[in-house]
Simulated assay, not measured.
Amino acid sequence: MTSPWAALAVLFTARLAMAFQYQVVASLGPLFMDRHGTNLADLGILISLYLLPGLVFALPGGGIAQRFGDRRVVASGLVVMVLGGLIMWQGQSWSLQILGRLLAGTGGVLLNVIMTKMVADWFAGRNLATAMGIFVNSWPAGIALALLLLPLIAQAGGLNAALATSMVLCIAGLALMTLAYRDPPASPGGTMPSGSWPRNSALTGILIAGCVWGLYNGALAMVFAFGPAFLVERGAALTQASGISSLVLWLAVVSVPAGGLIGDRIRRPNAVLLAGLAGFAVTFALALLAPSLPVFILMGLICGLPAGPIMALPGRVLRPETRALGMGIFFTLYYFWMAVLPALSGALSEQVGSAAVAFQLGILLLALAALGTLGLTRHRAQAA
């Protein structure tokens, strides 16, 4: 395989399997609670456990890839995901569900960190924002696919059939990675040189880029985590509120790759990034003033535009020999912000007594992400 787009298709499929596996618990929550006698709080913990290993493994994941090679470590991560899925599929106790979820999430962390670096290796200097937009789109696409298929599969064959489906998708990703994927021609393809820790301007750049990505995703989390509660406060029925909030995710499947494509076509990805952040903030404000279906449709069409250009930032600040550890730093910051911000928003909303605080916080997060982007642009100009 020598085509960058064919390689991207393999990486997209593997990450889609990760997103599909992540969504299993949320999509089948009532079935998990019925089987194990748990409550919503337990379910929330099980959902969050998938991303928790990122705080521990994101940074060393880059070093592991340097030592053993990208493709080998990604394949190992998929094996761990399959093992975690197998434990959840066959495990009858809640403790085994927790163990399986943590294992699956650990494998997913390795995928997230290393495959992003692999995309940058294939597309560095050409169509990078477009490729990153497509790659990042694997996450909402996988979640949307899980929302569509898992309830139908569970209805026909029960919870075990749905869990097995997720595991089979991970196995398919593993097969593609081991049998079809090859390293890019210009890639070292194995052990990276020693002393490849980002330094000076590169380290500053990746720290800023990681914060921008974390803040942006924190703003997105405000929509999916607190949008239904906010709309219910404004008079919507729960089913209607959930449907309107989920519509943002479906439309993001379109807007995420569009942002990367537009940025590359006009050769101004940062302009698309900043415009997308500003437009997303405006839709938050419109939702606070007059929450309605058209506002959330507009939010979905705009919110994904910054994703591809943001994910292209590490490829622009890191040299090939620093990408593995650099992406570990990038994703460690992402997992940190994603652990802190939803909890902070929930505490503030509880204190104020309204989920509208989450949307107000979303505006602030997007403003901080824009400032970070401007700061990174200035930093790169000074370092050049």
Rank of each mutant, 00 (worst) to 15 (best):
M88Q: 15
A141R: 04
L366N: 08
M81P: 07
I171E: 00
G157L: 11
P309H: 12
G263C: 02
L251A: 11
M132S: 13
G44S: 10
A219I: 14
A312Y: 09
G77E: 05
D183V: 12
V119Q: 04
G259A: 05
L261K: 13
A19V: 06
S93F: 08
I114K: 01
G259H: 09
L163I: 06
L145N: 08
W250F: 15
S76F: 15
L78E: 05
M81T: 14
W122S: 07
L147Q: 14
L111S: 04
V256E: 04
G189L: 10
I363K: 06
C211D: 07
P314F: 13
I244C: 04
V82W: 05
E350F: 08
L368S: 09
R15L: 15
L59I: 13
S187E: 02
N112D: 04
I206Y: 03
I64D: 07
V10A: 06
L374S: 08
M327E: 07
L313Q: 15
S27H: 09
P257H: 11
M33C: 01
P198N: 11
L344Y: 13
L376I: 13
A307I: 11
K117W: 01
A65T: 10
S345V: 13
N39W: 12
Y181T: 10
A324K: 00
F331E: 03
N217Q: 12
L174Q: 08
G218L: 12
G259V: 05
A7G: 14
A6I: 14
A281F: 09
L366T: 11
L305C: 12
G157W: 14
A154S: 13
T2I: 10
G85T: 12
V74K: 01
S93W: 06
A355V: 07
T13G: 04
G276P: 06
G243M: 07
I262T: 10
L366W: 09
